Amino acid sequence: MPVPVRVAAGAVGAAIGGLTYATMIERNAFTLRHTTMSVLEPGATPLRVLHISDLHMMPNQRLKQAWVSELEALEPDLVVNTGDNLAHPAAVPAVVQSLGGLLSRPGLFVFGGNDYFGPRPRNPFDYFDPDHERIFGDPLPWQDLRAAFTERGWLDATHTTREIEVNGVRVAAAGVDDPHIERDRYETVAGRPNPLAHLRLGLTHSPEPRVLDRFADDGYDLVMAGHTHGGQLCVPLFGALVTNCNIDRSRVKGVSNWGSRMKLHVSAGLGTSPFAPYRFCCRPEATLLTLTPVSHGDADFDEAASVPPLAAETPS
C-alpha cells in the first residue's frame, strides 16, 4: 500500500476511533469533582454544596439516571442546580426520580434555555460565535419541572432573592434567568445582599460577563453557573475550543476569580445535546464544593476524583 494511502487510512481510522470513544465511552464516564473554596465569612461553619448542571436528560438514559441517583449518598448540606435539565418533553419524571432524595435537602435552582425549549440540530461552527442567532426548539414542560422542584422544597432563585440557613450558615442567594437566550433581568435582584449573611451566592445558567460584573459590583462572594459543558470537545495541552458564551476559555469550567474578590464556579455539566452526543477530554461531571471561611493564606484547589464509568449507553 502506498505511503499516502496508509496515512489517509490511518487518519480515517483515528477519526473513527476518536468519535467512537467520545460518543460511547467518555460521555458516560461520569465524574465527581471535589473542590474547596474559601468564600464564607470568618468563623462560619464549612458548608458542603453539590453543584449539578446541564443534565440534558432523555427518558431512556438509564446510566446517567443511575449515576445521578447515587449522589444522594454524599449528604450535601445544600444542592445547587444551574439549569438545562431537560432534552425531551417526557423527561421530567426521569429528572425528578434521578435527583431522588436530593430534593429533600435544601436546594436552590435557576433554569437554562433547554428547560424552556427542546434541542435542535445545529451547525457546529455556530459555537465559535458566542453571539450567534438563537434557534429555539419545541416548548418543554418547564412548569412541571419547577412545580416538582418547589413542591419538594427547593427554592427557585430566578429573578428573586432568597435567604436560607443551612448547617448554621446563613446564605443570601439571588439568581437570573438564562442570559444566553437574553432572559436575564438583573435589575430585579440588583443591590447589595444581606451583609449579615455568611455567604452571598449568585446563580445563573450561562456565565455571561455582563451578569457576572453585576454580581461582583453588588458584593457577591460566589457565582455558580453551567452551560459551557466545559467546552465539550477539548484538545490535550490546549483545552476547550469554545465556551459557547462570552467568557474566555480559561474559565470554561472549575474555579476562577472574577474581579477583586468574587469567585466563579462553572460546572462542565453531566449531559450533551442529543444532536451532539459526544465529549472528548472533558468528562461529564457534578461537583461537591466544600466552602470554608476566608482567612489569610488560604488557597483554593480543584481536584477531580474520577468515578468509574458505567457501561456505555447508545446515543439517543
Rank of each mutant, 00 (worst) to 15 (best):
M224D: 07
P195K: 02
D184L: 10
D115Y: 00
L63D: 15
G10L: 13
H198I: 02
L32A: 13
T243S: 11
D77W: 02
L74A: 06
M262A: 05
E133S: 12
P195A: 04
R279Y: 03
V79F: 05
G259M: 06
H159G: 05
S256M: 04
E182W: 12
A190M: 07
N167V: 07
G239S: 03
G191W: 05
T23I: 02
P121L: 08
L40P: 05
P209G: 05
E303V: 11
C234I: 04
G168A: 11
A11F: 05
L47A: 03
G112M: 01
A94I: 07
S69W: 07
T243H: 07
M224C: 13
T31A: 14
G113W: 06
D300H: 09
N246A: 11
W142Q: 13
F215C: 00
H227T: 08
E70D: 11
A190D: 09
G202M: 04
V252E: 00
N167R: 09
V80G: 10
N246P: 04
E26C: 09
D126H: 13
M1G: 15
V96D: 09
E165F: 09
C245N: 02
L63P: 13
F149I: 11
P106Q: 09
T20R: 12
G226V: 06
M224G: 07
G101Y: 06
L40I: 06
S104K: 10
A286R: 03
V95K: 10
G153M: 07
P106H: 04
A240R: 00
A312T: 12
L102Q: 10
G231K: 02
Q65E: 10
P236G: 08
A305C: 15
T23G: 09
L40N: 00
A9E: 12
L264F: 07
H132S: 13
R146G: 05
P195C: 08
F111W: 14
R185A: 15
P93H: 01
E72L: 14
P284G: 00
S295P: 13
F238C: 12
S316Q: 15
F301Y: 07
A173H: 08
R48W: 08
L196P: 06
G269V: 01
V95N: 07
S295H: 13
I52Q: 06
S256D: 04
Y21N: 11
R6I: 13
I16S: 15
L270W: 02
V79Q: 03
H229G: 02
S256L: 04
M262T: 09
T31S: 10
R214K: 13
P274D: 01
P193N: 05
D138P: 13
A29Q: 04
F275Y: 04
L289K: 02
S53V: 07
S250N: 03
A66G: 10
L55G: 09
A91G: 08
P207E: 11
I181S: 08
T204D: 09
A14W: 10
E41C: 12
L199V: 01
V49Y: 01
V68Q: 01
V80M: 12
